[in-house]
């Protein structure tokens, strides 16, 4: 057996639950292989537990472990860092709980908060950033930590209650869809639910970051005067929150 064959066989012995794969290393290897196999699974379960503490609390330990094991079987790790391993866990949750959009959105929130925590740093906004801006051509720079998703449930309320260890409300559908916004301010990840208009306005900046396009979008929704006023309000909010981190032009 050459090195490549040995390593492919070892991979199979970690991933497969039957004894056929372990047989290639002989009976004397059984105890040692069991240690490696246990390490492999325990580490991945622990990784998901660390990545999704509130999903775990929401589901309960037993159901979470069942989901984690299902995920490990269907999604073997590929990346060099374990930090990426939980990225597709929501796919497993969707497959196991297709009628629980609150759970899926809760998982998205939890993962996005983790991603935002280690996203690239944004340069600090300089004090005179708003001076001498030509607003007709101005382009807004968004923080690299920004994560957006349409919201259909009160998953943000669930996450906040679970994280704060307060009374957890029932999961429920929103009266009107909106959006979740996750980003990092300083070293702290932030979560906010916004209405559909504000969400579309922020999401639109990813395709066209110009302030003019933002105004146009809001004018379409709210009329000339109110739309332009709202664009100014949102820009001020996003600058203060650290969602917009610079203005070019």
């Amino acid at each position: 057996m050459n090195l490549a064959e040995l390593q492919h066989g070892f991979r199979s012995s970690l991933m497969d639950t039957d004894d056929a794969a372990t047989g290639i290393f002989g009976a004397s290897a059984a105890t040692g292989l069991a240690v490696y196999r246990n390490n492999y699974r325990a580490q991945l379960v622990a990784c998901l537990e660390v990545s999704y503490p509130q999903v775990r609390r929401w589901l309960g330990d037993e159901a979470f472990r069942e989901a984690a094991i299902s995920h490990i079987v269907s999604h073997p790790p590929h990346a060099w860092t374990l930090d990426h391993y939980g990225r597709d866990f929501s796919d497993t949750l969707i497959a196991m709980y297709p009628r629980n959009p609150d759970l899926q959105e809760l998982a998205w929130i939890e993962w996005s908060l983790s991603e935002a925590f280690v996203a690239a740093d944004a340069p600090k906004l300089v004090d005179d950033a708003l001076w001498n801006v030509d607003w007709d051509v101005a382009r807004l720079r968004l923080t690299p930590s920004l994560r957006l998703r349409p919201a259909t449930t009160n998953a943000d309320d669930l996450w906040l209650a679970l994280d704060g260890d307060t009374d957890v409300p029932q999961g429920s559908m929103l009266d009107a869809p909106g959006g979740f916004v996750v980003w990092r301010k300083g070293f702290s990840s932030q979560l906010k639910r916004v209405d559909a208009t504000d969400f579309d306005a922020l999401a639109g900046l990813r395709d066209d970051p110009s302030f003019a396009a933002l105004c146009e979008k809001l004018v379409e929704r709210r009329g000339e005067e109110d739309g332009v006023r709202r664009a100014g309000e949102l820009l001020a909010e996003w600058l203060a929150a650290g969602i917009v981190t610079g203005i070019d032009g």
Partner: peptide
Amino acid sequence: RIAGFNSHDLLPVPYTSEA
């Protein structure tokens, strides 16, 4: 790591000339 799979464990190398 082998063929895109990553065990995230320190798996042993055989002590051979090829390795």
